[in-house]
Design a protein around this nucleic acid. Structure first.
Length: 572
DNA sequence: GCCGTTTTCGGCCCGACTGTTTTCAGTCG
């Protein structure tokens, strides 16, 4: 059993929480959190790196001590310090700090003075009015705790980016309509195009903040105003989403935009560079002593520290600052670089629209080609195609291409990978296609070795072209199936196979780290919508967002290629 | 616990808001 990066990160985060409750050196706590964040976002498996004899202490934020702890964890599955610390820190304390507004100090006070041992105890204590009697607490705090314990019980997931857009769009329009407001941007993870967002960070420039604030908190979707000052307000909308709004003067909009776009780790690194140059950088601008030397635009902020503008999608402190400093920032793929969509369904199986309607819609989006990838027979619920029906579809597409102008419909399929790694249709029909998209749709629970072997075997088939949604995860609802992604990528490179980045907002699979790993390992990616209707073709931009977060450039993405070259790449 | 153009010790980002306080601790981002 290989220990995954996410597990290592989880353990370090748990340890950080416990150490914080113990009143440990805050910088030591931060060191664990920083390491956890790096490990979670790192594309390569630390366990495998160790297996290859790598020195983990060379990784940023990981020194000799943490490298040793990771080695122990990988070898034994255990983190002794975590086990020891967990024995000393009562579990209810940890639970209480998950409540907004309760940090280590207040949780400790509640635990000791009121013998709170569970969130139920906490809710009871709040209702009975005992919390307000503690020093440092009052009636207001007590009331908030009562509300927030309630909410914690029905805690929501982070919102998928596409859903967050639905909330953000009308809110931004409302803000733009307020008198005195100049610029409005959604910053934070939304601007970095993360696949999910925990809250919305809205940045507004206006001369008179307090007046604008009064209007903002009256937005009709606001359920609760959690904080309101003259420059900042925290709101909770009716749908449960938290919104932070900041108002800054126009002269500081760029520095504020940079600051509130984050990520936090990226900001800290940039701020450090500013300090090294004798500058002070905060949300109000770039300063040399008392004198402001920039901040109206983000470009000014980056220029002040001697960097080109780093695209928001890269701002995760995953090497982008170093790349920028060396002039090696990737020229990220853009929506307009794409020449076609390589995974679409039609009415023949579970799609809603005809092949012709899909093709015309794709032509209308400026595409040069579009492929039709209906399911194969194993997916009975979708009335998957057997050999005979697929052959008929092939002939129908030939006839369609003969009369369609301006776009080429590619003949393909989304063929199931069976449990033993065979494909669900005979080679005799697969060879009639332009290429194949191959997918796992069942048997998600196989162990890592079996699942990996299944994919490798499938890729041995000479007609295997693209691995669809390679990990099978569904954001907020289904874990990725257990595969050794590095081995799969290695096999893909050897065999000339391509990985899909499925652009469905609940898939985005490969994810950003997977894309980056594919790129590093020399495997190309197809960004595809998996469209089941014409409107789904517009989901492509979410795939592009994720690809950009994965550092992909046009040359890493097969569907930026002109048709003739694409055919060459997909024909193994 | 990490790290190094202030380099192996002594720093580590820092401002806003709230609630309970009469000047600030706690929390958050």
């Amino acid at each position: 059993m290989t220990v995954q990066n996410a597990e290592i990160a989880d353990r370090f985060e748990q340890l950080a929480d416990l150490l914080e409750l113990q009143g440990a050196n805050p910088y030591r706590v931060r060191a664990y959190r920083n390491a956890a964040r790096f490990i979670r976002g790192h594309s390569r498996s630390l366990a495998e790196m160790l297996g290859e004899g790598a020195d983990l202490a060379e990784l940023p934020g990981i020194g000799a001590d943490l490298a040793g702890k990771i080695a122990t964890l990988v070898r034994s599955g255990r983190l002794p310090l975590l086990e020891q610390t967990a024995k000393k820190v009562p579990a209810p304390l940890v639970e209480m700090t998950r409540i907004e507004g309760l940090g280590p100090k207040r949780a400790q006070a509640l635990y000791e003075a009121l013998q709170i041992r569970s969130l139920e105890d906490l809710a009871r204590a709040a209702r009975s009015g005992r919390i307000r009697e503690l020093p440092g607490f009052g009636a207001r705090t007590e009331q908030l705790i009562a509300q927030r314990v309630e909410r914690a019980a029905t805690a929501e997931h982070r919102l998928r980016l596409a859903d967050a857009e639905q909330v953000a769009r009308p809110l931004v329009a409302y803000l733009r309509g307020i008198a005195g407001v100049k610029d409005v941007e959604v910053a934070g993870s939304f601007r970095r195009r993360r696949e999910t967002v925990g809250d919305l960070d809205l940045l507004v420039s206006a001369a008179r903040g307090a007046k604008v604030m009064d209007r903002i908190v009256r937005y009709e979707e606001v359920a609760e105003v959690q904080a309101q000052g003259s420059t900042r307000a925290t709101l909770r909308l009716r749908n449960g989403l938290q919104v932070d709004v900041r108002v800054v003067p126009a002269a500081a909009f760029g520095s504020a935009l940079h600051y509130f776009t984050g990520s936090k780790a990226h900001n800290i690194a940039v701020r450090r560079m500013a300090m090294a140059r004798g500058l002070k950088l905060n949300e109000y601008g770039v300063f040399r002593g008392q004198r402001r030397v920039g901040g109206r635009t983000e470009a000014e902020v980056f220029a002040a520290v001697g960097l080109p503008v780093i695209p928001p999608e890269l701002r995760e402190d995953r090497g982008e600052i170093d790349a920028a400093r060396r002039g090696k920032l990737p020229k990220l793929v853009r929506l307009e670089d794409l020449r076609g969509d390589l995974h679409c369904h039609s009415r023949a199986t579970d799609g809603r629209d005809t092949i012709e309607a899909m093709a015309r819609a794709a032509a209308g989006r400026g595409y040069e080609y579009l492929s039709i990838n209906d399911h194969s027979r194993h997916v009975t619920v979708a009335h998957g195609l057997d050999r005979k029906r697929l052959l008929e579809q092939i002939r129908a597409i030939d006839r369609l291409n003969a009369r369609l102008g301006g776009i080429t419909v590619l003949k393909s399929v989304e063929v199931d990978i069976l449990e033993d790694g065979r494909l669900d249709l005979p080679d005799g029909v697969l060879k009639e296609l332009d290429f194949t998209v191959c997918a796992v749709h069942y048997g998600f629970g196989y162990g890592r070795a079996r699942q990996t072997a299944r994919l490798l075997r499938a890729m041995d088939n000479p007609y295997f072209s693209i691995l669809a949604h390679p990990t099978g995860r569904l954001i907020n609802s289904r874990e990725a199936y257990d595969i050794d992604l590095e081995r799969v990528l290695e096999a893909a490179r050897e065999r000339g196979c391509v990985m899909e980045l499925n652009a469905q907002p609940d898939r985005l699979d490969l994810d950003d780290r997977g894309c980056r790993l594919a790129k590093e390992m020399g495997v190309r990616v197809a960004i595809s919508t998996d469209a089941h209707r014409v409107a789904d073709l517009d989901l492509m931009r979410f795939g592009v967002d994720q690809a950009r977060r994965g550092w992909l450039e046009p040359g890493d993405v097969v569907n930026t290629l002109p048709l003739a070259e694409l055919r060459r790449v997909l024909r193994r």
